[in-house]
C-alpha cells in the first residue's frame, strides 16, 4: 500500500525552462519526508492506533485507519512541502513590482493530477468494500437482514436503548434481560440493536462496534472478541438531556466463565424474565409502563416500582 503512494510522482512538476529545477527540488524534499512518515505510521504508530485489537472488527478498523494514514501522509506532506517551498522561494522580493509569468495551465500536469487522484480514490473505494466484506460488516450496524455475516451460530445479544440506559437480552439463555454486558472470548457475537424511544447509538469502543438503535428496527452488527478484558459502551447519537451520561462498561471473559455467568444470571433473573414481554427483534414502547406496573405488583424492581431505577429525572 505504501509503495503505491510513495511511487506517485509529484503531479505539479512542469518542466522549468531555465534556472533551478524546482520540480526536482520539491520531489527530493518530499520523498524522504514521505518515506519516513509512512514508516513511522506503519511500524511505530500503527499498532497503537484506535480502536485497538480487542476484537476482529476493532483489528479490522485499526488496519483500515493505518492504511489510510499511510496513503494520506504522503499526499499531505506533498501539498505542505510544495506550499512551504513556494512561500519561501517565490515570495516577492522588496522593490520587485513585476508580475509573475503568464502561465495559464499545463495539460500534462492537469491530466496526471486527475489520473493520480482518481487511481487513489478508486483504490480506496475497492479497498473499503473488500475490507467491509471480509470483516463481516466491520462492526457497523447492517440493518435487519445483514448481507455480510459470519458462518456458524453466533451468540445473540440484544441491545435495547432507552433514555438513558442500555440493557441487554440473551435470547439463547431464556431471554433474560440485564444491565450487564458480558461476552465470551473467541466466539462470534451478533448484536441486535433496537430502541424503545428515540434514536441512540450503541458504541462499544474497544470492540469496534457501532450500530444505531432505531425504534422499531433490528439493527445487526457482528464482531468476534479476541481478548478478555473490559470495554466502554457509550451512546454516540444525541438522545436528549442525559445523553452525556449514557455509558456503561462491558467485559469479555473466557467461554467457561461466560457460561457460568449466563447460567447463574438466568436463574437469578427468572422471576423478572417471566413477566417481560417475550423476546422479539423489536418492541412496542407502549408496553413499558405495563411492565413497570406488573413488576411493582410482583414486588420486583428498584425505587418507585421501576425496574430501571429512575436516577435520572424524567424528561419533561
Amino acid at each position: 500500500m505504501s509503495a503505491a503512494a510513495d511511487a506517485a510522482p509529484p503531479p505539479a512538476a512542469p518542466a522549468a525552462p531555465a534556472g533551478p529545477n524546482h520540480g526536482l527540488r520539491i520531489f527530493l524534499l518530499w520523498l524522504p519526508l514521505a518515506v519516513i512518515a509512512d514508516l513511522v505510521i506503519w511500524i511505530v504508530w500503527g499498532p497503537h492506533l484506535p480502536p485497538g485489537t480487542m476484537s476482529s472488527s476493532a483489528a479490522n478498523q485499526q488496519f483500515d485507519i493505518k492504511v489510510m494514514a499511510v496513503l494520506a501522509a504522503p499526499v499531505m506532506i506533498f501539498v505542505l512541502t510544495y506550499f512551504g517551498y513556494a512561500l519561501i522561494v517565490w515570495r516577492q522580493r522588496d522593490g520587485d513590482t513585476e508580475d509573475g509569468p503568464a502561465l495559464h495551465g499545463n495539460s500534462r500536469v492537469q491530466a496526471s493530477w486527475i489520473t493520480i487522484t482518481s487511481v487513489i480514490v478508486l483504490f480506496l473505494a475497492v479497498f473499503g468494500t473488500v475490507e467491509l466484506k471480509i470483516a463481516n460488516g466491520a462492526g457497523a450496524g447492517e440493518g435487519p437482514s445483514p448481507i455480510w455475516k459470519p458462518g456458524g451460530a453466533p451468540l445473540q445479544v440484544q441491545v435495547i436503548g432507552q433514555q438513558w440506559k442500555f440493557t441487554y437480552r440473551y435470547p439463547q439463555f431464556g431471554g433474560f434481560e440485564t444491565t450487564q454486558l458480558v461476552l465470551p472470548e473467541g466466539q462470534w457475537v451478533a448484536f441486535h440493536v433496537t430502541s424503545l424511544d428515540v434514536i441512540h447509538s450503541f458504541w462499544a469502543y474497544q470492540l469496534g462496534v457501532k450500530a444505531d438503535a432505531n425504534p422499531g428496527v433490528d439493527n445487526v452488527a457482528y464482531t468476534k472478541p479476541e481478548h478478555t478484558g473490559g470495554f466502554v459502551v457509550r451512546c454516540s447519537e444525541l438522545c436528549g438531556l442525559w445523553h452525556g451520561a449514557m455509558f456503561d462498561y462491558g467485559r469479555v471473559v473466557s467461554m467457561s466463565a461466560f457460561r457460568t455467568w449466563a447460567a447463574s444470571t438466568r436463574v437469578q433473573l427468572a422471576a423478572v424474565t417471566r413477566i417481560l414481554p417475550p423476546y422479539a427483534t423489536t418492541y412496542d414502547p407502549t408496553v413499558v409502563p405495563q411492565i413497570n406496573k406488573a413488576m411493582a405488583k410482583a414486588g420486583i424492581g428498584g425505587a418507585n416500582g421501576y425496574y430501571y431505577p429512575p436516577q435520572d429525572p424524567v424528561q419533561p
Binding site: 524546482h22 510544495y82 506550499f83 517565490w90 515570495r91 509573475g100 509569468p101
Partner: peptide
Amino acid sequence: MGTFWKAKIRF
C-alpha cells in the same frame, strides 16, 4: 499549486 508556481507572492 499551479498558481503558486514561480509566482511573486505578496503576503
